[in-house]
């Protein structure tokens, strides 16, 4: 193993320019999908914030008689519900006035609004389907006159986030393949420059797998060094962006570990693909 690792190290030292270039290229190729991933994470956090404010309003029938403590307790016990708040007719009128502006409701003979209960939904249930289901449950209550919520908003938000996720997965996949192709191409070029030396190894009796090993190690090292470069760039970008968008955060420790693992495995796979094609039995 020492001989193989030494051979890989010798190869990198023999052409430092090519080695640095390959590390930078792998680093950049890793940077772009990682930045997209972090953007998606920030988007998720942002959408989570929005979803944590999603609420339904259940208007109560005119003849529904209070107190509604029992009803509130039953609604609060629903798994989708984060918090319930009873709203008096006066609360709702004040809210409406605040929205429409002073004087617009002055001509009304009285308060036309019924009493209501606001139901704050847990963020994980703030999807179009879950909201529709909860609205159905609430509408079925005998006290319920009408249940309202931002149905159109929920639909649009769901579609938007679904499309963003799909697009990011697509771009990340494509760029992952790019990293693979770059690593494979770098190793292919390295092998071409050392064809004579590889021939000597094979003639000495090295098995093709043994002769390929240094290039697998070089591929993994390029992935590792590229990951380090990429991680540095990501850290600085995230630190800078979080000043403008607080939802932007750097990788967590397990994510950093996964990042290294994915980078090394992808570069190694590229090296394996290239070396298997280039180094064949004599």
């Amino acid at each position: 193993m020492r001989i193989l690792a030494g051979e890989a190290w010798r190869g990198l030292r023999a052409e430092p320019g090519a080695a640095i270039l390959s590390v930078v290229v792998v680093g950049l190729a890793l940077y772009i999908p990682s930045m997209l991933y972090l953007t998606a994470q920030a988007g998720d956090r942002f959408s989570q914030q929005i979803r944590s404010q999603v609420k339904l309003r259940m208007y109560l029938k005119e003849d529904a008689m209070g107190p509604f403590d029992g009803l509130q307790a039953q609604l609060a016990a629903l798994p989708q519900v984060q918090k319930v708040t009873f709203r008096t007719r006066e609360d709702l009128l004040n809210e409406l006035e605040a929205e429409l502006g002073d004087g617009l409701l002055d001509g009304l003979p009285g308060n036309p609004l019924p009493q209501a209960i606001d139901i704050l939904v847990k963020p994980e249930f703030a999807t179009e389907q879950a909201l529709e289901s909860l609205a159905g449950v609430l509408s079925a209550r005998p006290e319920s006159e009408e249940v309202v919520y931002g149905r159109a908003w929920a639909h649009r938000a769901d579609r938007f986030f679904e499309q963003v996720r799909y697009l990011l997965a697509l771009i990340t996949g494509a760029l992952g393949l790019l990293v693979l192709a770059i690593a494979a191409n770098i190793i292919r070029l390295i092998i071409r420059t050392r064809r004579e030396s590889i021939g000597v190894w094979l003639l000495l009796g090295a098995s093709p797998l043994y002769a390929r090993m240094p290039y697998y190690i070089e591929g993994a090292l390029a992935g590792l060094a590229g990951a380090l470069v990429s991680l540095g760039m990501l850290y600085f970008t995230c630190t800078w962006l979080s000043g403008f968008v607080p939802a932007f955060r750097f990788f967590t420790a397990p994510e950093v570990f996964s990042f290294f693992l994915i980078a090394v495995c992808t570069a190694l796979l590229g090296a394996i693909l290239a070396a298997r094609r280039q180094i064949v039995p004599l």
């Binding site: 030396s197 000597v200 094979l202 009796g205 039995p281």
Partner: peptide
Amino acid sequence: PARRRPELRRRIGVVGQELSLLNDR
């Protein structure tokens, strides 16, 4: 077969044109 060629070559010592020395070692 190709997979058995390395094994045979390990039993052969070669001096000369076909097997040059590694100049970076």
